[in-house]
Nucleic acid binder design. Sequence first.
DNA 1: CAACGCTGTGTACGCTCGTACGCATGGCAT
DNA 2: ATGCCATGCGTACGAGCGTACACAGCGTTG
Lengths: 179, 179
Amino acid sequence: MPRRYDPERRQRLIDAAITVVGERGIGALSHRAVAAAADVPLGSTTYHFATLDDLLVAALEQVSAEWVADMERWERDTAAEVPLAEAMTALVERLLEGDRKRLELEYELYVTALRRAPVRPIVAAYLDDTAALLVRRTGDLSAARGVVALFDGLLLQLLLTGRPFDRAAVRAAFERVTG
Amino acid sequence: MPRRYDPERRQRLIDAAITVVGERGIGALSHRAVAAAADVPLGSTTYHFATLDDLLVAALEQVSAEWVADMERWERDTAAEVPLAEAMTALVERLLEGDRKRLELEYELYVTALRRAPVRPIVAAYLDDTAALLVRRTGDLSAARGVVALFDGLLLQLLLTGRPFDRAAVRAAFERVTG
DNA sequence: CAACGCTGTGTACGCTCGTACGCATGGCAT
DNA sequence: ATGCCATGCGTACGAGCGTACACAGCGTTG
């Protein structure tokens, strides 16, 4: 294979890692899998990311940043008059209709943080950022955290059971917690 | 090693698997790790559980069953007059003071179910059983599911951030959702 | 009491993996 | 123009893994 000049190599490896993890789970992340997905030789991955944890952290940081940016966009685009419960319900519905693999990855990220210290700050930042975002609507930080908790719990339930999305039930739950 | 007659072998392997998974995570589960933890030869684990998934499912079924039994005991021992929000808050507090590894395992079980089909029924049963339990208090199934969602979301947040348990905030959240 | 079959044991094969390392190459600073 | 060093590439090593399998011992059934 001819040597290829590739100044974006590092970023492309991160993207490939996200693809691998999104499609096959964090457990399937390996230097080799990423190398194959990015179509680069094995040695290249170990050059840019000496250990597998480095690669995992870089990938999850990007996933998390994109997720938070998404939430910020959502908050900005939601009129202040819309009741929070309604907005949250619509958000859950939109997410479930979208890329489920991405949601699964998000929650895999959560649980990975439980066991792997280097991942903890990423999740902590996500939780803080999201709560800070919702404070604009709830006015109270504890309440915002409660909304995040309900949001995560409901999404997990819906993903796990595959139960059809019940707008009324979800909205009722959010109404109680945001009321 | 002399042959040992051991009619409880299978159960002891399951217990060993739970120990391994609890201490080092589901990713660390292997025939060899379980064999070492149970102090039996490798061949024995493959005899009782032909594939690793069989072993994982058996272990997680037991974990889940114990968990549900715990919840049932808790519900039975909580006087009907105690407001649900107060009871839930006390439960969360008790759990956080207890064995955190066990909680981590519980949520690892959740996320594992997202990717591994054989584990899904276990989690689905847990969710159904827990909601059925709480219906006795809420009277309404959707509301019960909402309580479970908030419960899981809050526990995850507290485990992940390591933030100190804030009884007032947790209770306020449950009070809102339990109306 | 015999033989069948369930249970227990040790070993081996083939695979994937993380990681290390030596060499090649060419962009860029000088 | 040139030389340096960041980057790219291929390979190799040792470890851990799932799984298969042949053989050994003993409880049970007839």
